[in-house]
Design a protein around this nucleic acid. Structure first.
Lengths: 186, 186
DNA sequence: CGTTTCTTGAAACAGTCGTACCATATACTG
DNA sequence: CAGTATATGGTACGACTGTTTCAAGAAACG
């Protein structure tokens, strides 16, 4: 008996907190401004998530879930040549709508370099692409267990994303991807 | 008249502060622990640098100066094929001794995504390579003003550095660079 | 010596941080 | 209604932040 729990509240808070972190970044995150923006209180954030660290972990998990879902919705899994796929991935990841995700991605990586203990499964963010890419890049890969080609492909995309987010030079980065496609084709 | 100024003290402090930041990262930097590690006081740090922000700017400038000097010392500017050059750059940047610089580099980039106003010349960290690389990559570039090839080459290196610092998988990242060289050769 | 300038220590200020404690409000059961 | 569980507000604690203030020390000069 007693008042029934309301798990939906935690989910609502998590969703809005994820919006907030995507908008404002992880670096200077603090409970009081976050709570104010979410029309709640630090008290409730700790009540629902236990501690700031667990809240951040939940937000990152939620952001990853969202990213994966959006990706699955927007990348046709089977159609087209490997080159078309590569261009599709680049177009999708470099689109302005993805900028908050990209920023959070780079932010987590940087923090993970100083505090690896906080991100036990961060390597998965890299190797998780191999299964997805290995299938769509068939014809470029040297075999079904080729991890080197996906590694290079994702390195190009991440490196160009790094460049684009720093310089904002869309034309030059787009052309650099064209050049990479050209190298792959020959 | 009066006691003469001692500008050497500021330089000594700057050098040691740069060591400290390279070792501990920029993210959680705070004056009191820094001063303790440097056998000085927060009072003196502010006396010499004016504010924490100016101190950080000075440290970043010093770190960039060091990196450039080390690079100039270790990369033969003229000898060898473009491929050898590329391998040399990768070997140099991915060496464990460079890890602190790489970490700081990624950290500054991530912070710059959230606070661009603090890094007015951060694009230079990208485009600064073009002159250096354009010369050494002659034979791969399409012309003397080709910025696309250096963009792609540096994207590969940065992307692979991102991978290596996250996964620690030296073998796979080395092989990915081999594969890139192979693509360039054909 | 006194004067002047640079250097340095100690302490305090005003603020933010994550978090814990205590009381109360709310919604349900019997 | 009482009883019981969850939900929530308010407040305060201790630690930390960058920075300022006040005073004194240290090294030059006349």
């Amino acid at each position: 008996m007693g008042r029934p729990p309301d798990p939906a509240r935690r989910e609502r808070t998590l969703a809005r907190a994820t919006d907030y972190v995507l908008a404002h970044g992880l670096a200077g995150l603090s409970l009081r401004p976050l709570a104010a923006a979410l029309d709640t209180s630090p008290r409730m954030l700790l009540y629902d998530f236990g501690s700031k660290q667990e809240l951040v972990a939940a937000v990152l998990a939620e952001a990853r879930r969202r990213g994966a879902r959006r990706l699955a919705e927007n990348l046709p899994p089977e159609a087209g040549s490997p080159e078309e796929h590569l261009r599709g991935i680049w177009a999708w990841m470099s689109a302005p709508e993805r900028a908050p995700f990209v920023r959070l991605f780079f932010e987590v990586h940087a923090d993970g370099l100083t505090h690896p203990e906080n991100y036990p499964d961060r390597a998965e963010a890299i190797t998780g692409w191999f299964d997805t890419l290995g299938a769509t890049l068939r014809g470029i890969t040297t075999g079904p267990d080729d991890t080197v080609t996906p590694t290079l492909v994702m390195a190009v995309i991440r490196g160009l994303l790094f460049d684009l987010t720093t310089t904002g030079d869309r034309g030059r980065t787009d052309r650099a991807l064209d050049r990479f496609c050209e190298l792959l084709r020959r």
